[in-house]
């Protein structure tokens, strides 16, 4: 596991706030501002979305932000260029999240190497299956000391959760309910039972809950069952509001934390 992720979960095993945003949205060169403002407002961990034309696991909000980001000219090389000096400015753990095809075209090894070089700590590729990861890519991720973060859902069988836990080295992304991103139905009772079930499994990796976390209540509810929670669509929506980027980020994060 990367030291930054390890340190974070050691120092703050509970109540950790993680935020997702789409790189290149609302404007191409907002990446650094968003990272630094989120950190300044007390966010613990960041997922930087690499936009894809066909984001299958995402709902309308992240689809729309991805479309805008691509129109703005966001690409993987561009993102690495923007992150080149980020470690001189912040030590907040950074995780890149995206779909496999753009990473494949960039070259998986080149991608890992570059990610490590700019100081990225972990990678989430929801459509890279476990088996393919083990057979083709695990060594690369380990060589570059990148944490590979997998998703589990309420439907994931226990044996598979154990397998995922044994292959993970950062945290486990617990998808709150069977859904694409951005559904704001709240955390259903079934979800609570699932969180409970996973918590009782005493996994070696900490769990962070995501999908559907959109306000203070859902954040706090999620935090009672896991090390922390991830807010994505609700944050991306907040960036749409009138006002400057720093203002929007500050007021949104305060609405979650206070």
């Amino acid at each position: 596991m990367s030291n930054r992720l390890k340190r974070l979960f050691a120092q703050k095993p509970k109540g950790l706030l993680s935020v997702y945003f789409t790189a290149g949205f609302p404007n191409l060169n907002d990446t650094e501002t968003i990272i630094l403002e989120l950190e300044k407002n007390g966010v613990d961990l960041l997922e930087i979305g690499m936009p894809f034309s066909d984001p299958l696991a995402d709902g309308p909000t992240i689809q729309a932000s991805s479309t805008v980001a691509l129109k703005n000219g966001m690409t993987i090389p561009k993102l690495f260029e923007q992150l080149q000096d980020i470690r001189q400015k912040t030590q907040i753990p950074l995780v890149l999240m995206g779909y496999l095809n753009p990473v494949m075209q960039y070259g998986v090894e080149r991608f890992c190497q570059k990610a490590a070089e700019v100081g990225v700590d972990g990678i989430i590729l929801p459509d890279l299956p476990l088996q393919q990861y083990v057979e083709e890519y695990k060594e690369l991720f380990e060589k570059y000391n990148l944490s590979k973060i997998f998703l589990i859902t309420p439907q994931t069988p226990e044996a598979r959760i154990r397998e995922i836990d044994s292959l993970s080295n950062g945290f486990i992304y617990m998808v709150s309910s069977a859904s694409t991103t951005g559904k704001t139905v709240g955390l259903a009772e079934q979800s609570q039972a699932y969180f409970q079930r996973v918590s009782e499994m005493k996994l070696q990796n900490p769990g962070v809950i995501g999908f559907g976390i959109h306000d203070k209540d859902t954040f706090e509810a999620a935090c009672t069952h896991a090390s922390g929670a991830i807010i994505g669509s609700a944050f991306v929506k907040a960036l749409h509001r009138e006002g400057s980027l720093p203002e929007n980020i500050k007021s949104f994060i305060q609405s979650i934390k206070n």
Binding site: P129, L151, S179
Partner: peptide
């Protein structure tokens, strides 16, 4: 070929 799907579709 293969099955390059998010975990949500796995079951």
């Amino acid at each position: 070929g293969g099955a390059y799907i998010p975990e949500m579709l796995y079951p």
